[in-house]
């Protein structure tokens, strides 16, 4: 009786049609809902309360405290504002002309807290070409921001002199090499000129592991596109950068160099870390996107073989001009 009923069902073409249709629909839905197609919903991050445990202070600070009679600054300044900060996007030349005097910034865009010895010696390296408006907004925002965090810092603007494709990674390598000639910085922050940190609790200092700072960016809908992302703004200790041999020098055009840098770090047994999305919140200044480079995937694939032979140890460049402007150290280079 039952078997006959089953046979009847399968003999009916209508049922088979429905089964095939539902299988197809389920398959399409599975493809559409595959988690690899979306922003990563869960990733490990450092909680707000753990930030002070994770920060790595510079060893120079203790020696300096013995030499001078100044006290040591706290690792994270107390009473940092917790509200979201916004850049002034309608800045004019006039506004930033007297900024350096007002904020007591040394020539070359350097500053350190006058009343205590900062535990963070940070070089902020910004690759740059032809974004005057954004640079003005960035500088006028970042100096007060970094001063509130009580850092010993200097802002380096590395400008590419050559026309043609932009080589962000090589400019960052050059910034690293030139910064070390000025001061033995303990911590390096590689920062895009269009990124604006919105939370003062996002310390511009290094953690024990290399840190991806811009993990909650407005243009990415405050989501992290993929767990391996290590671009935009990153903080890495000088010794770690030396160990991974810096960035690759061969990535011309947009894209790829950050993923290559990430695989270098992983290859050296280090891991990435991030602050919580609440803290690591950034806003991007508006501009049109760059065209992605065509051979970025090719360079990425051959990346593993070039870790030793392509990086800061093989860096070749000529400095066209180097100027200590009031708000930044400007280095114009020929790649």
């Amino acid at each position: 009786m039952l078997t006959r009923a089953v046979i009847n069902i399968f003999q009916s073409k209508d049922i088979i049609k429905k089964i095939i249709l539902s299988i197809v629909i389920i398959f399409i839905c599975c493809c559409m809902l595959h988690p690899g197609r979306f922003a990563s919903s869960h990733y490990h991050y450092i909680k707000y309360s753990d930030i002070s445990n994770e920060l790595e202070p510079t060893p120079h600070a203790l020696a300096l405290v013995k030499e001078t009679d100044k006290p040591l600054c706290s690792l994270i300044p107390n009473e940092l504002e917790t509200s979201l900060q916004y850049p002034n996007e309608s800045i004019r030349e006039y506004d930033i002309r007297y900024l350096a005097d007002r904020l007591n910034i040394e020539k070359g865009g350097a500053w350190k807290p006058p009343e205590c010895i900062s535990q963070h010696e940070v070089a902020i390296v910004v690759p740059y070409r032809n974004r005057t408006m954004q640079l003005q907004i960035f500088l006028s925002y970042m100096h007060p921001f970094l001063q509130k965090q009580m850092l010993n810092y200097r802002i380096f603007i590395i400008e590419q002199w050559t026309k043609g494709a932009f080589n962000r990674a090589k400019l960052l390598n050059i910034g690293y090499a030139e910064a070390l000639k000025i001061f033995p910085y303990h911590c390096f922050i590689f920062h895009d000129v269009d990124l604006i940190p919105q939370k003062l609790s996002n310390m511009y200092a290094c953690t024990h592991q290399p840190r991806h700072m811009s993990s909650s960016l407005n243009t990415f809908r405050y989501n992290l596109p993929y767990k391996e992302l290590f671009g935009g703004a990153v903080a890495i200790l000088q010794k770690q950068f030396e160990l991974v041999n810096g960035f690759s020098n061969i990535f011309y055009g947009w894209g790829g160099e950050d993923d290559d840098f990430q695989s270098r770090i992983i290859n050296r047994g280090m891991s990435l870390c991030r602050f919580s999305p609440e803290v690591a919140r950034y806003t991007m200044l508006a501009h049109s996107k760059e065209l992605p480079s065509e051979n970025r995937f090719l360079n990425l694939r051959s990346g593993r073989d070039r870790f030793e032979t392509d990086g800061v140890n093989t860096l070749k460049y000529t400095i066209i001009k180097m100027v200590y402007y009031p708000l930044y150290t400007w280095i114009l280079v020929d790649l």
Partner: peptide, 8 residues
Amino acid sequence: LEIMPHEN
């Protein structure tokens, strides 16, 4: 890669 799975 900016849409969360639950939004989709």
